[in-house]
Amino acid sequence: MQWLRLICLAALCSALPARAAPAGDPFNSPLWPNMHKLMLGGGKVVFDPKVKVTIPERVEDGHFVPVTVDARELGEVRELVLFADYNPIPRALRYQPLAAQPRLSVAMRVNQATPIRAAALDGKGVWHVSGQWLDAPGGGCALPSQTRSTTDWNSLLGRVSGRAWREDGALRVRLGVMHPMDTGLVSNVARFNIEQLDIRDADNRLLARLETDASLAENPLFTLHLRPTPTPLLRASSQDNDGNHYTATLPLAP
């Protein structure tokens, strides 16, 4: 019966392409099928310019690539994923904007020129994918942390800074955590990165959640846009893969 099993398997495999990565990738990236599978779980995808990705067209230092993702035009968005096809660690983050607008700004690393993509999961479970091509030199992920070589991490590690601004219909929040975000790709430096950042209100209600990867730039600084909330303060809590917890309170001016 072994051969029958094999035939069934073969049939199954040949049936797979129908559900495989959707065609029409604007970057023609050979890694798109992998990205589709690994980043988006092989889910239903449309390429959609309503998801806006803003980056500089080129960087000369792969350590720091500022990115803004804005999926507000889609209406309801359950989550946002930011990734770079040609990065050794493709995903930079996954964002659940529970009580926030589906947009954020952050900086990531790239190891070479690559598409920088964002995918937004809408209320019907469809991924809306868009991106920009970034020209970059090699090595952003495989070079040592710059803060590590110039300052004393002992006093800086996990220090949180932040500020909030009220602007039309939203609360702009910038939160930074001092952290090397080591990729594990530099010899003799193990992977060491923040894995999660939660933002809660004074009653500990979760407002936004970020899952973060080592391909974010070191000392990550997040710009988020919360929906208006009566809470007098925000609580930020994050943890890294070494089990360290970093927490801070950000008071909000009335």
Binding site: L156, G158, V160, S161, G162, R163, G176, Y246, T247, A248
Partner: peptide, 12 residues
């Protein structure tokens, strides 16, 4: 950016 963002936690 660094100068415009107050620290929320003390140095370790």
């Amino acid at each position: 950016e660094r100068a415009a963002l107050p620290w929320l936690t003390p140095p370790r």
